[in-house]
Design a binder for these strands. Structure first.
Lengths: 247, 247
DNA sequence: CGATCGCTTGAGCAAAATCAAACCTCGTGG
DNA sequence: CCACGAGGTTTGATTTTGCTCAAGCGATCG
C-alpha cells in the first residue's frame, strides 16, 4: 500500500521494480490506525521511526501557550511525516490525524538501508523534502501577503494539485476532510471569516465545498485569483535523467 | 573564514581539526562580494553551487505578481543558502543581499566530497537543514497567529539567539541591518505599522532599535511577551554523542 | 430524542492598511 | 562648507479587513 508514495516519487524519477517492491515491503511491516484528533507524534517526543501516511489526512501543528493552534502543513497519502527527524533530540511540533488514517511505521534503520541501497530513492526522498520545504515557505507568503479570498483560493489550488499527483482527484473534485475551523487554523483566519470567504468564492463560482467534497469548476480561473504559480511544487520531473528503464 | 559556520555546526557536535580545516578550505576557494539588493541567485535559476554567507546578511524572498514582496528567511554569517538545492531544476525563490555581504561559492562536488568523507559533518549539515525548516514553520505561526507586538518580539528573540550562536552579539545588543520596510515584508505588516509597533515595544522598554543596533534590555521579558519557546532552534547539542575528541 | 459538532448569520469592534505629508540623516557634488 | 537629493523614519487621518460575541440552524449518532 505504498502506492501513493510511489506515485509521488515518480514525479521525480521513474523507479525500478526492485525499488518499488522494497518500498512496498517497508510500508507493510507495522501498521497503525488513528481517529481524527489522535496524535501520531507529539511535540517533545523523541522521534525514533518514520511514519508514512497510507490513507487519510494528518497535519503538522503547534499550539501556543494561550491555546491558539496553527496548522503547519497537511500530510496526505504518500507523505512521510518525519523523515530524518530522528537526527533531532525531540520533535518541535506535533503531528495529528485530521481524518481517520492508517499509517505505516518504518524503523529508521530501514530508511537508512533503503537510501544506502538505492541512490535514486535517496535522491527522490531528497527531492520530496525540498518540495515540502518549498510548500512551507509558500504558506508564509500565503498567510502573510494574500487576503482571505486569495489565500483560500491558493490553498485549494495547492491541495488539489497535490492530490492529483497521487491520483486522489476525481475530475475537478477531491475530498478535503477538514472542518472550517481547521481551515481557519491553517490560514490564520477566524472560523467565521473562513465561512464568509468560502461563500464569496462559491458566489464567484470558483469553488464549491460541500460535505468534505471540494469542486473546482475552473482551476485556471482559481489560479488567477490566487496568483498561484506552481513552480514551488517542482512538478517538472527534475530527476527524469535518473529514470529506471524497467516498466 | 568559515568560523561562523563552524561555530554554528558545533552547536550540534564538536568537529575534529580535520573537519574544520576542510570546511575552511572549501570556504576559501571562490569569494564574491555583493551590495544590498543585489541577488545571489534568482528564482528560476538552475542552482549549480552552494553559497556560504561569510559576512553580512542576505534573505530568501519571493515577489508576487502584483509586486508585494515576502521575505522568507534571513541568512546570517555561517548560513548556507542553497544546500542540496542542486537536486532541483530551478530555484523557487530568490536570495538577495540585505547588507553588504561576502559569500563563498562552493561547488556541489566539494559538498558531496565533504559529506562522504566526514559522516559527522554530514549529520551536522542535516541538523542545520532541519533547524532551518523548523524556523520556516515557526514563521508561519508568527505571521499567522501573533499580533504585531508579539510578532516583532518573537522575530527579535529569534534573530538575537541565532546571532549569539555564532558570536555576533555584544552583551544585550546586536546588529540588525534591516530597514523597517524590510521588517514589514518579513512579518506581513505595513511599514507604517512596523514603525508604530517598534515604538510600542520601545515604550515598554522591551526593545530598542536605533541605527541598525538592536538592544534587548531583558531577553527573558521579551520572550514572555513573544510567547517565545526556543525548542525549535534545537540548541541542546543534539549530536553531542558524536563529538570529536580533539581540541 | 436530546446532545454534540459543525455551519451560518448579524452586529459591533479592533487591528492593521492606506494615503498623504513631513522630517531626518547622510553622502555627494557644486 | 553648504545645498540637494535619496532613502529611511515618523505622524495624522481615514478606511478596510477581519475578529469577537452571540445566537440560531442542521445534520448525525448513540
Amino acid at each position: 500500500m505504498a502506492i501513493y508514495l510511489i506515485r509521488k516519487l515518480e514525479h521525480f524519477a521513474k523507479l525500478s521494480n526492485e525499488e518499488r517492491t522494497s518500498l512496498e515491503r517497508a510500508a507493510s511491516l507495522q501498521l497503525r490506525q488513528l481517529n481524527p484528533r489522535e496524535d501520531i507524534i507529539y511535540e517533545g517526543d523523541q522521534p525514533t521511526q518514520v511514519h508514512l501516511i497510507l490513507n487519510g489526512w494528518a497535519c503538522r501543528y503547534k499550539v501556543l501557550e494561550d491555546g491558539r493552534r496553527q496548522i503547519l502543513g497537511y500530510l496526505i497519502p504518500g507523505d512521510i511525516c518525519d523523515m530524518r527527524m530522528f537526527i533531532l533530540k525531540e520533535m518541535d511540533h506535533s503531528i495529528g490525524a485530521v481524518s481517520p488514517i492508517s499509517v505505516a511505521e518504518i524503523p529508521k534503520e530501514t530508511i537508512i538501508a533503503l537510501t544506502d541501497a538505492f541512490p535514486r530513492l535517496s535522491r527522490a526522498f531528497w527531492w520530496n523534502s525540498l518540495v515540502e520545504d518549498a510548500i512551507t515557505r509558500e504558506w508564509i507568503i500565503n498567510n502573510s501577503q494574500r487576503e482571505s479570498t486569495e489565500r483560500m483560493a491558493h490553498l485549494f489550488c495547492e491541495l488539489f494539485i497535490r492530490l492529483r499527483m497521487v491520483g486522489l482527484t476525481n475530475g475537478n473534485s477531491c475530498e478535503i476532510p477538514v472542518t472550517q475551523a481547521e481551515l481557519g487554523e491553517t490560514m490564520g483566519l477566524s472560523t467565521v471569516h473562513v465561512n464568509r470567504t468560502l461563500q464569496e468564492l462559491r458566489a464567484l463560482n470558483l469553488v464549491n465545498l460541500k460535505g468534505r467534497i471540494l469542486t473546482i469548476p475552473d482551476l485556471k480561473a482559481l489560479q488567477v485569483v490566487a496568483m498561484f504559480n506552481d513552480n514551488y511544487l517542482h512538478l517538472d520531473r527534475d530527476g527524469h535523467a535518473m529514470d529506471a528503464n524497467e516498466g
